[in-house]
Nucleic acid binder design. Structure first.
Lengths: 213, 213
DNA sequence: GGATGTGAACGACTTCACAGCT
DNA sequence: AGCTGTGAAGTCGTTCACATCC
C-alpha cells in the first residue's frame, strides 16, 4: 500500500536529502534533527516527525545515520532513477548550468543542449555537443526526456516553451524572466532569486526599524 | 501601527507581485484571483484573503487593478528602495547573472563584481568593471551593500562567504553546491533547481503509476 | 455571468513539555 | 548529558459553500 505523501512532506524531505548529502561530503557520519533544522529552516521537532513518518529511526543521544537517511529518503521519493534533461540555450547561462555539478549529483543528466545560433552548433558545452533547436523533438523522444531547461534570452522563451510542450516535455525549468503560457499538464518552475530576497529583506528592514526602540 | 506580517503571507505577496508585474508587461489591466492562483500555485480563495488582509480590494466580476495591486504590495513589503548587490565570480554564471534583467526589474542593482582571477580584473560584465576580490570589504562598505551573490567554483564558495560575512553582508545568495557555514545573523539562500524538480517528479511518477488502474 | 468577500470546518504545521533511550 | 520520540494545545493555511456586488 503505497500512499501518496503530502506535498509539504515531500518538499521537506528533499531539503533533508540535500543537506544530509552535503554533510556527508564534509565527512559527517551522523546528523541531528537540530542540525537539519538549522540548515533547512525547519523546526527540529518537525524534522523528527517527518523522518518518523517515513519509518526512519535515529538513535537517541546521537542523531540519524547520515548515509542510511539519504537512502531512506531516496527510496521514499522514488529518486533512484536518472532523468535526462534537454537544455536550450548555450550562452553564458546555459554553459554554466551544463558545467555545474548540482544536477548530476542529484541524478539529473544534461543529455542534450540546443541553440538557435548556428555559430554555436557543434561546440561542446559541459560534456555535450550543441545541436540545433530544430532537432529538439527528435532528441527528446530518443532520450525519453521529460524535463527541459530554458536558458535563452527572454525573447525566445515562449517559443522554446511551445517547442518543448509539443515534444512532450512535462516539466520546464524557466531561468528567464517571462511568464510562460503552457497547457495545464506541463509544470513550469521559475528560477527567480528575488523571490527569496524580497521575503528576507522585509524582515531585515523590519528588524532594523525596531532596533531604535 | 505597523505590525509585522506573517512569514507565509509575505512569501505569497512576493509571488503575486512578480506575476502581476509580468502580466502588466503583457498589457494586462486587471487580474483575477483565479489567474494569480494558476500562475503561483496558490488557491484563489487564499489570494483573495491575502489581498484583503493588506487592505486591497478588487471589483467583483472584474478582478484586481493590476497596477494598483503592484503598488499596494510594494508599499506593504517596503520594496520601494533599491538594493546594491556584490557579485563574486565573473565566469559564465556570474556574467549571466550580471546581464540578466531579473534583478534590476525588482529593484536590485549589481553594483560591484569581483573575481580572484587577475585575467578577469578590468573586464566589463553587465555594466560593471570586475574588481579584485581583495577590494570586496571596501566596496561593500562604500555602496552600503547587504546582499552578496556567490557565483564562483564550489571550491571557493566558503572562503567567499567568510569574506562577505566580515564585510557585513547580511544576505547571501549561494549558486554553488556547497553547504555554507556562516554566523546566525547571516541569511543564506541556495539557488537549487533540483529542489523543485524532485518534488514535482515525485508526483509525476506517482500519477503514472496510477494510470494503469 | 463572473468575480470578490467571508463564515465555518478541516487539515497541516508549530510549539511546549516531557518521557525514554544510549 | 544529549537527542529522539510523542501527546496535546494552539496557530496558520486550505477548502467548501454561498452571499454579494459589478
Amino acid at each position: 500500500m503505497r500512499t501518496t505523501l503530502q506535498p509539504g512532506l515531500t518538499n521537506r524531505l528533499t531539503k533533508y536529502l540535500r543537506t544530509t548529502q552535503q554533510l556527508i561530503e564534509e565527512g559527517r557520519d551522523a546528523v541531528s534533527s537540530k542540525e537539519l533544522g538549522d540548515y533547512t529552516g525547519i523546526n527540529p521537532v518537525q524534522v523528527r516527525r517527518d523522518l518518523n513518518a517515513i519509518g526512519f529511526s535515529g538513535t537517541r543521544g546521537v542523531g540519524y545515520q547520515a548515509y542510511d537517511l539519504v537512502e531512506a529518503v531516496r527510496d521514499i521519493l522514488g529518486l533512484r532513477q536518472t532523468y535526462n534533461i534537454a537544455l536550450v540555450g548555450a550562452g553564458n547561462l546555459g554553459s554554466a548550468i551544463a558545467a555545474s555539478t548540482i544536477l548530476p549529483k542529484r541524478g539529473f543528466v544534461i543529455h542534450d543542449v540546443f541553440d538557435a545560433d548556428t555559430d554555436k552548433i557543434g561546440r561542446t558545452v559541459g560534456n555535450v555537443v550543441v545541436k540545433h533547436i530544430d532537432e529538439l523533438a527528435k532528441s527528446v523522444a530518443e532520450a525519453e526526456e521529460i524535463i527541459g531547461i530554458i536558458a535563452t534570452p527572454a525573447s525566445a522563451a515562449q517559443h522554446v516553451a511551445d517547442l518543448m510542450t509539443e515534444a512532450n516535455i512535462r516539466v520546464i525549468l524557466n531561468y528567464t524572466d517571462v511568464l510562460l503560457h503552457v497547457p495545464s499538464h506541463v509544470d513550469v518552475h521559475r528560477i527567480d532569486p528575488t523571490a527569496q530576497l524580497m521575503h528576507t529583506l522585509y524582515y531585515l528592514t523590519q528588524a532594523e526599524g525596531q532596533e531604535a526602540s
